[in-house]
Structures are given as C-alpha cells and as structure tokens.
Design a protein around this nucleic acid. Structure first.
Lengths: 129, 129
DNA sequence: AACTTTGGATTACATTTGTAATCAATTAAC
DNA sequence: GTTAATTGATTACAAATGTAATCCAAAGTT
C-alpha cells in the first residue's frame, strides 16, 4: 500500500516543496488562491504529519513544517499509479494521449526528443542506472 | 467541475469499454480478479449510471450496460487533470518523469519518436486539428 | 494578575468511496 | 398457483476527504 495523499493535501506538499521549513501561517499565505480557511490548512498539515509525509521542528510555540519525502520520488510514484490505474500500464497509449492531446509546443517537442536521445544512448552504451 | 469517476468505478468502465453492452452478471464475471461481490459491482454500475457515464437498455428483466462516454475523451480528461494536479501543468517535467523513471523499452522509444515526428510534420505544414 | 490572542490538538459534520446487505418485483420452477 | 431464484432499487455503514469550529495551553498585553 502506497502513501495516500489527497488532492488538497498535495497542494500543501507543493508549497512545502517550493520552500521549507514554513510555519502554518506561511503555508496558509502561500495557499491564498485556494480560499481555504487557515483552520482547513492546519487540518491538512496535521493529516500530512500523521501520514508521515511532512515533518516539523518546534520554534517556540509554533511548528515549522518540512516535506518528509522527496518530490521526485513522490511524482514517480504518482505517475506509476496513474499509468496503471488509468492506462492499465499501457505506456504507449499514455504517451500518445499526452503527445496528441496536449498540442506540445516545438520547445517541448525538442526537449522530449533530447530526453529520448539521452535515454537511447544510455541504453546503447549499456549505461543504465 | 468534471465528471468524477472513482478508481473502482474506472475498473468497471474499462470492462465496458472493452466490450458492450454487457449485463451486470457479465460485468461481474469480467471483474473476477477484483474479488468484488456481485452486489458491489452492481453498486458501481448504479453509481455510474447516476453519474451519466454509463447507459443501459432493458433486456427483459435485466439491463444491458454500455459506456456513455468515449474512452479517448475520458483518458484525455484524466490526463489533463493529472498533469495539472500532480505536475502543476508542467508538461516537460511530466514527460521527463515518465521517460526517465519508466525505463522505456526500445520499442516504446521508437514509437514515441514516431509520434513526435508526426506531430512535428503536422506543425510544419500548418496541418493542425 | 486578568484578559486577549495565537497556534496546535481535538472534535465535527457532510460527501464520496469501498463494500455490501436487504427489499421488492418479476420470472422460473415445481 | 405457490415457492424459489434473479435482478434492479434502496439502504447501510465505515474510512477518507473537504471544510471547518471548538478546546486548551502558552505567550503577549494592559
């Protein structure tokens, strides 16, 4: 069973990944666009701590929160789950959907090509890992 | 607000996208691997109908269910949501995560390159849409 | 010192989801 | 025709999630 982080909680994680440690007040400020009451944000922080994906250190009366997991690792997990659940593991179809539906910019296309070339040369040289 | 289809419900949609129309019994059979009671699957079918993403026609005492939305459209919606929620719309990062983490096979890499070439020639010829 | 404010902890409550069981009507079987 | 099986409809109920409000202790204010 993987760590479960809800949508709303993910928004909080994003804030902490951008900058940390942050006090709850600071997190609330960075989430103003969401129009959540500070009580709500505090609930999310609490739940994230309980889930073990956010840690805190005391600073007087208040807590300073930090992510307890790496963003990259989290994104990889989420991506894998998405691939499995929505595309039943069919990577080709997933890629096709993104490439075809999202109207990639030339810039993004070039970037992706670069990624593929790197990946390919890695494979050719046996330089995996 | 987009149509909300839960994980379990998605499994049912997958079955119907593979083949339809199907009776509830047939859907249950195709979902045996999930180990859900037939009552549970019926609940999902009901909820999907209420959500308007599955339709049915009567066949005597029973119903024959069919998807009421296109799989491609659904995948595109889900993909867009995933991109926005998890990667905050950063397509480059999403692509990088998939390409780098998933250890694409040579076959998948070639396929993806093909997609990119098609996409590029479309763009160059102004042949978009 | 008493009062107010602040900030984490606890509690609340509706909705969604997972997971069924029960009810009711219809059909199939004796 | 009465009974049993089938199948959709309704109801159930706990856990997760969205969204806060209330409680309580420590710190700041007068």
């Amino acid at each position: 069973m993987t760590i479960r982080v809800s949508e709303a909680e993910k928004s909080v994680m994003d804030v902490l990944w951008q900058e940390s440690p942050l006090s709850s007040v600071e997190v609330v400020e960075k989430l103003q666009s969401q129009e959540w009451s500070e009580k709500t944000v505090k609930t999310f922080l609490n739940r994230l701590v309980k889930k073990g994906v956010v840690s805190f250190e005391k600073d007087g009366r208040r807590y300073l929160y930090s992510p307890a997991i790496e963003r990259e690792e989290f994104l990889a997990d989420e991506s894998e789950g998405f691939l499995d659940k929505v595309f039943k593991g069919n990577m080709k179809e997933l890629l096709a959907t993104f490439v075809e539906n999202k109207q990639l910019s030339q810039n993004e296309l070039d970037y992706l090509k670069g990624l593929l070339d790197d990946n390919k040369s890695d494979k050719e040289s046996g330089n995996v890992e």
